[in-house]
């Protein structure tokens, strides 16, 4: 009778290993499910701000004209992209570049 049972019920070590792997896998899936939407929101606000800055730079439009804010919004996900302009002033020193911010909050 003893010899028949041998090998039928799998070893506890192998079962524990499977449980540990499934748990780690589950935790990883949960981590990515939580982290990815956040990373996606950051990436989206960053991309929108950057695209607006590029278009604004070439068309000479500021953040307000591009439908964005000139300061960092207090939203959970927000990003700013900065471009610079320059104003020529005939005097005896250089002018500081004029900072223009294009910010998007989500």
């Amino acid at each position: 009778m003893e010899s028949v049972r041998k090998g039928f019920i799998f070893s506890l070590d192998a079962a524990l290993a499977l449980i540990v792997v499934i748990m780690v896998g589950g935790l990883l899936v949960m981590y990515f499910q939580v982290a990815e939407p956040k990373a996606g929101a950051y990436a989206a606000s960053d991309r929108i701000a950057e695209d607006a800055a590029v278009v604004g730079f070439y068309l000479g439009k500021d953040a307000g004209q591009m439908g964005l804010s000139g300061t960092l919004p207090s939203d959970e996900f927000a990003s700013c992209s900065v471009v610079y302009g320059y104003e020529i002033r005939v005097n005896s020193t250089w002018s500081s570049p004029i900072e223009k911010k294009y910010c998007k909050g989500m």
């Binding site: 090998g7 070893s11 290993a17 540990v20």
Partner: peptide, 28 residues
């Protein structure tokens, strides 16, 4: 001949799962 076959299958499954998880996470 069948001695430990279930343990072997379960251990192999665990190994395949672990490799798949590591590969997916690494790719991401």
């Amino acid at each position: 001949m069948r001695k430990g076959i279930y343990s072997g299958v379960i251990a192999l499954t665990a190994l395949v799962l672990a490799v798949a998880i590591i590969a997916t996470a690494g790719q991401r």
